[in-house]
Design a binder for these strands. Sequence first.
DNA 1: CAGTGTGAAATCCTTCACAGCA
DNA 2: TGCTGTGAAGGATTTCACACTG
Lengths: 272, 272
Amino acid sequence: MASQTRAGTLPGSGVAAAVLPAAPLGSPPAASPAAAKGIPAATVARLPVYLRALAGVAARGVDTISSGALAEAAGVSSAQLRKDLSYLGSYGTRGVGYDVEYLRFQIGREVGSAHDWPVIIVGLGNLGTALANYSGFSSRGFRVVALVDSAPELVGRQIHGLTIGDIADLERLVADSGAAIAVIATPAEAAQAVADRLVECGITSILNFAPVVLTVDGAVTVRKVDLGQELQILAYHEQRKADEPAAGRIGIGPAGPRRIDREPASNRRIVS
Amino acid sequence: MASQTRAGTLPGSGVAAAVLPAAPLGSPPAASPAAAKGIPAATVARLPVYLRALAGVAARGVDTISSGALAEAAGVSSAQLRKDLSYLGSYGTRGVGYDVEYLRFQIGREVGSAHDWPVIIVGLGNLGTALANYSGFSSRGFRVVALVDSAPELVGRQIHGLTIGDIADLERLVADSGAAIAVIATPAEAAQAVADRLVECGITSILNFAPVVLTVDGAVTVRKVDLGQELQILAYHEQRKADEPAAGRIGIGPAGPRRIDREPASNRRIVS
DNA sequence: CAGTGTGAAATCCTTCACAGCA
DNA sequence: TGCTGTGAAGGATTTCACACTG
């Protein structure tokens, strides 16, 4: 058995995702906004970053921006930004830059911000509750439409205007809400069972916060966010810093302020 | 087959990391666990996954495991698992497999699980509070030792046995707690200022939940987790599924319920 | 000119395939 | 015999560098 999507891991990340078939063989005709063809997974992962950066500059009244400036705001190199955008189409103007609003619209369309995505959250412990209250979702086109938990003391409670439903009614709630995306914030033990039921009733995308590797049908996209894992990765780097006190950059070479203006998804190797 | 891969983010992903500058020329052999030399970032990101998988099988009483079995539990291919472990050293036994406890110890040492890492959390809104209560940290060698917020109504409150301190005392709290790792869960506007102060008083690793790109000194490691971003990446894939009939893979018939709502397939383009 | 768009080179990562050992 | 460890092949991503255009 191995036709499942599982989780690769992103360089430098505790986040994993199942992605679309590369392209070999007969890639199915993709229909989509602009160039739906083969946008690299790495690029897709950065589009939301660009959107956020654009929202930021737009808020400051900027209406045209160069790849260099936008790249800095997004924390990537300008070459990477241009390459990424080139997969979507040619939305810039040579010698000038990009029209902020137009680019926002184009990237937003590609990512699906145009839609209003209904989301269901399963598991309302501390994390699930925080997510239910999180305002960052609505501003990006997501709407939490249903909350589900199995604990009797939670069922019936109200969070952010929504009543927590009983896990027993999961199927009905999913159907009624029309959600296609689900967030799993249950304990590890319950996650797989919940995922199975969600997939059964039509959910095709899952954001999993439970510390387990979910096994699902290949057509379902799963992304995982593991908080403990993120800290462990930091700890790895932290440990590495324990030694190597030298190599002080202060005073040596270019006195320039060594800032990090790019944070590539993946990274260079960690050097001794 | 679901091509499983990684997703940038790394940042994919919605996660990104800034790491140390490249090789400082004549760097002396770093004194570190095993092979501290050049472990690929992608491998480092998976080590926590292996640790978790090992904890799982250990709990079930397994004391020896093959790369194939462990790989399945971790959601990666056996080749990748072996390659990853080969960066740490040769801890397996040919023809047999890996001793679970021994491997746990070795990976744990590499990741730094041996240490007891003090962590400070800044920003105790819904998310910060959830993190403060999160039990997954302690089980992995992390200990939340200080909580800080700027809201008067929060300062002084107790969470999980800790009293929330005033942001004004940040420097003192960091020094007293001895934390080297910080978690930022403040609103986007406050994040950069908080990061600057944290770096100023010696924090060298930051896990950032605020939806902004932090600019820090190159010696500081930053990882970002952006919940809205994760959902947007899912939305991208979701949008792609709108068309395309399910090219089901698993032999079993397409018992899968077809969802129909949203997106009346716009254009259709045949691609290479 | 300034700044985009993009082949091509350089890197990084994953998968293969198999030699070699317990 | 079974499974690890690893060079080498194959992909994917990032970086370069520059032709091209408003």
